[in-house]
């Protein structure tokens, strides 16, 4: 990605006095960014640290890299990991798209997009095709991402084994030994009790045939999109202080059994707005008499399809 090369050590003023929120700190800044903060909020030393973690993560696909996650002005669990990753890779010429639940207009997406507009002054977009960086919570856009794009996932819990083994000292060992029988036992139990695997989101994947990985709480429907994706996929978990990555065109397999293959789950309907029958749908309750309709969760994709249909109709 493009990097802000001129932004070294905004606070290296040489004094040790605590600056009293007086705005007395001079720092170079990109146009559009706010006073007193470095480009994209994080100082350059922190960004370098995060980029080093990202490089490691790319080198070992699916492996969780501990990193010195910083405290962010947004709360833990609301995307601090994704924000730090985005802040570290963002350059002044990037175009950022932020989605939550697939939509650009959800409150948290707006809040994060605003944050980057404020602290980095970068261009933002709602069009997946126009973005160089897409930060997401809980979805992968329907439109296939390209080689020149990066998708940054917000991750609440990077450890795929945490419900089976809460101790990180132990899960670390299980990863080191690729000892993943436990995860399969969980899937076995689902089939034995319920007839099929009952994981509907945050469905565990094997990356590059080696590391078991949490895809973050995206619906299982999105899992196949991770497999051999042309775009670089980065994952940031702020509270848990872990970064991991999937390089472009890497194998990502959802765990399953030969006789109970992985199946993506979606509501068996078509979108009420664009008519799409193969995208992930949100269920919208329209009245209190059981009325409901289904619409695309990816608002940008849906809008584009509607526009295309309108254009075709006009022609």
């Amino acid at each position: 990605m493009n990097s802000a090369t001129t932004m070294d050590s905004p606070r290296a003023s040489g004094t040790i006095d605590s600056p009293r929120a007086s705005g007395a700190i001079d720092s170079p800044r990109a146009s559009g960014a706010i006073d007193g903060y470095n480009f994209a909020y994080l100082d350059e030393a922190t960004k370098r640290m995060i980029r080093r973690a990202l490089l490691k993560a790319v080198a070992i696909p699916g492996h969780q890299i501990p990193f010195g996650a910083r405290e962010m002005p947004l709360p833990y669990g609301w995307g601090t990991g994704g924000i730090q990753v985005t802040a570290s890779i963002l350059g002044p010429t990037d175009t950022l798209k932020v989605i939550d639940q697939g939509a650009d207009d959800t409150t948290n997406a707006i809040s994060i997009r605003r944050f980057f507009t404020r602290v980095a002054g970068v261009a933002t977009t709602e069009h997946t095709a126009d973005a160089t960086v897409v930060q997401t919570r809980h979805r992968i856009p329907e439109r296939t991402l390209r080689e020149d794009q990066i998708i940054v996932y917000q991750v609440p819990q990077p450890e795929p084994l945490f419900r089976l083994e809460p101790r990180r000292t132990e899960t670390k060992r299980l990863h080191a030994l690729a000892d993943y029988g436990l995860m399969h036992v969980r899937l076995y139990e689902d089939i034995a009790r319920l007839g099929h695997i009952a994981k509907a989101y945050d469905y565990p994947v094997m990356v590059n045939g080696r590391y078991l990985m949490s895809p973050s709480p995206i619906p299982a429907f999105d899992n196949p999109k991770m497999h051999r994706m042309p775009a670089l996929q980065l994952f940031g978990a702020g509270r848990e202080k872990r970064i991991y990555a999937i390089p472009p065109y890497t194998d990502v397999r959802s765990l399953d059994f030969e006789d109970h293959p992985f199946r993506p789950i979606r509501a068996p309907h078509v979108c009420a707005l664009c008519g799409s029958g193969d995208t992930y749908l949100d269920e919208v309750i329209t009245d209190d008499a059981g009325g409901r309709l289904f619409v695309c969760s990816d608002t940008d994709f849906c809008a584009e399809r509607q526009a295309d249909t309108a254009k075709e109709a006009a022609e």
Partner: peptide
């Protein structure tokens, strides 16, 4: 034993740990 895992899962775990991926045959 894994006390929170069914009897079948307990027996199947070692099979799965060494790569068994066919639910029917594990069962």
């Amino acid at each position: 034993l894994r006390l929170a895992v069914s009897a079948g899962g307990n027996v199947g775990e070692r099979l799965m740990a060494v790569g068994a991926r066919h639910y029917g045959s594990i069962r």
